[in-house]
């Protein structure tokens, strides 16, 4: 039971990470009608920037703040140079163009940071485990990830629902032409939204970095999971992305923890170890297929679409 609780926390942590990526993707899709495969590259860039700045400043917090700022700027520059000409073209063009960008960024990172990966080491006070329930200890840093992402999600909610920029973002999502006709600088709005998405992805990358590894292509597999999240949640819906991210995170983690034993129970020991992880990955896609059959618009479709 305690093990299950711990796995739920792990699932939450993965889910929150997915949310950060999916929120940016879904914003960019909902507002600019743009499919961005290079979103995973921004996740990677965020991690590399953070690794470098933590090294330079010798401070975890300052390094992350600078890394976040750098990713934001990188995202906005990328939008102005390469993404802007792609607006209004068909989705195949987006896929191809951003696929090219993804190849470019992988190579650029190799050129700048070299082929071998980086690690970010946590400050020693982060390395402890805290007692979350009587008898259950959980690594502090993972809790920090969950809480920090929840805070970011709340901030995002406030920005989108309670500020003037957020109002423009929502207006842009429901009727682009009208917002432009009313005299809003739509180009600037797009650049801001893309930058915001980039910063969210970069934040996800750097938060994950200390518990995994900073390496080339690190954003690619998680990007596909983020796509699945926004399909399940409903494209363009941040609320949907939030719920679906948690669902997918929980299924993936709990599946990985318990399916191998389940398979072992019915089949053999080795079958469990090998088929378990594959099965739990499949569960997510199965869920996606079910959503598509019964609610093609997603579980929590964006309003007014």
């Amino acid at each position: 039971m305690l093990y299950l609780f711990e796995q739920c926390l792990n699932g939450m942590q993965l889910g929150m990470l997915l949310f950060l990526l999916a929120a940016g993707l879904t914003l960019i899709f909902g507002i600019m009608d743009m499919v961005n495969l290079a979103h995973g590259s921004l996740y990677m860039l965020g991690a590399y920037f953070a690794a470098t700045f933590v090294e330079v400043t010798d401070s975890f917090v300052a390094g992350f703040a600078l890394g976040l700022l750098a990713t934001l700027i990188a995202g906005m520059v990328l939008e102005v140079i390469a993404i802007r000409p792609l607006y209004g073209r068909d989705h195949l063009d987006h896929v191809l163009g951003t696929f090219g960008l993804l190849i470019f960024f992988n190579e650029l990172v190799r050129l700048i940071w070299g082929p071998e990966g980086r690690t970010i080491s946590l400050p020693s006070e982060m390395l402890t485990a805290v007692q979350v329930l009587p008898g259950v200890y959980y690594p502090l840093y993972r809790l920090v990830i969950i809480l920090a992402t929840l805070a970011v999600a709340a901030l995002l909610y406030i920005i989108v629902m309670r500020t003037r920029v957020g109002m423009l973002i929502r207006a842009g999502a429901s009727n682009r032409e009208m917002v432009g006709a009313l005299g809003v600088n739509i180009k600037l709005l797009y650049t801001l939204v893309f930058g915001l998405g980039a910063a969210l992805a970069g934040f996800a990358g750097m938060m994950q970095a200390p518990i995994s590894f900073v390496q080339i292509g690190m954003g690619e597999n998680i990007l596909i999971l983020a796509f699945v999240v926004i399909i399940i949640g409903g494209i363009g819906s941040i609320r949907g992305a939030f719920a679906a991210a948690i669902i997918v995170g929980l299924i993936d983690t709990i599946g990985r923890a318990f399916l191998p034993d389940l398979v072992r129970y019915f089949l053999s020991y080795s079958a469990g170890s090998s088929a378990g992880p594959a099965l739990s990955s499949m569960l997510i896609y199965l869920l996606m297929a079910l959503v598509l059959i019964f609610r093609p618009e997603g579980l929590f479709p964006a309003a007014g679409k």
Binding site: L96, G97, F99, G100, L101, F104
Partner: peptide, 10 residues
């Protein structure tokens, strides 16, 4: 190669 793809698309 990457930017070339983008240019071909455009």
């Amino acid at each position: 190669l990457g930017p070339m793809l983008l240019l071909i698309v455009l």
